[in-house]
Each structure stands twice: as structure tokens, then as C-alpha cells.
């Protein structure tokens, strides 16, 4: 994975794990790799990997069973929130790009409807 230089690596990996959960690649309740394995998967520092799990747990995305490992949270609420977040991001970028091209709200809707019915 290529990392952007202006954002902490742990946040970029969390975003990647989130999108993998949304894509159904990782399922709620599934066991996640140990932090050393996670470090190897992303070629990142082991401390950064450990921090990823601490932060994910704080965000309600994962939980730890002592001595067993880290698991993806099973509550669908977190998944719904992530979906909303992702939609917000994608739509926000779309609208920004469209208005940069000079489209107003009506034309945007018109273009989008036409495109979808193709």
C-alpha cells in the first residue's frame, strides 16, 4: 500500500481496513491478524500496528478478547456509520468536482439521472 505523506500512517491503514469491511472482504465478528502480522501485511512499524488496534477499539470498530486476539465489531451501527461516512466522502468529492466544472444543482441531477438510466 502506498501511503500519503501528510496523514499519519495509522489513520491510513484504519481507512483501508474500514473500506475492506464495507466491501465485505472482512466480516463483522471476524478475527483480525495479530499486530505483528498486521505490521507485516502493510510493511509498517509494529508500534504503529499496535496503535491501529487501540484506535479501532476506541472508535468501536473492533474489540479485544484477552489472549485470543482482536475481532471486528459485530454491531451493525458502526458499519452503518462507516457507510454514511464513505457516501459523504464520495458524494462530497463528486459535487466539488462538478461545481468546479461549472454545473449547478439542477444540471448535476439531470446529468446524474441521465447517466444512471444509460
Amino acid at each position: 500500500m502506498e501511503f500519503k505523506s501528510n496523514t499519519p500512517i495509522y489513520l491510513q491503514v484504519i481507512d483501508d481496513i474500514k473500506s475492506r469491511i464495507l466491501a465485505g472482504e472482512i466480516c463483522p465478528g471476524e478475527k483480525l491478524p495479530s499486530s505483528r502480522e498486521l505490521a507485516l501485511q502493510y510493511d509498517i512499524n509494529p508500534n504503529t500496528a499496535a496503535r491501529i488496534y487501540t484506535e479501532m477499539e476506541r472508535m468501536g470498530l473492533s474489540y479485544t478478547k484477552r489472549g485470543i486476539g482482536t475481532f471486528v465489531a459485530e454491531n451493525p451501527k458502526a458499519v452503518d456509520e462507516m457507510k454514511e461516512e464513505a457516501v459523504e466522502k464520495v458524494l462530497g468529492e463528486f459535487i466539488q468536482n462538478m461545481s468546479n466544472l461549472g454545473f449547478d444543482k439542477e444540471t448535476m441531477i439531470k446529468e446524474l439521472t441521465e447517466y444512471l438510466s444509460k
Partner: peptide, 10 residues
Amino acid sequence: EQLREKERKS
């Protein structure tokens, strides 16, 4: 990571 967080630099 702090450098990325505070100065937004790698």
C-alpha cells in the same frame, strides 16, 4: 507519526 500529525510531513 507525530511529524505527519503536526507538520503534515513524511
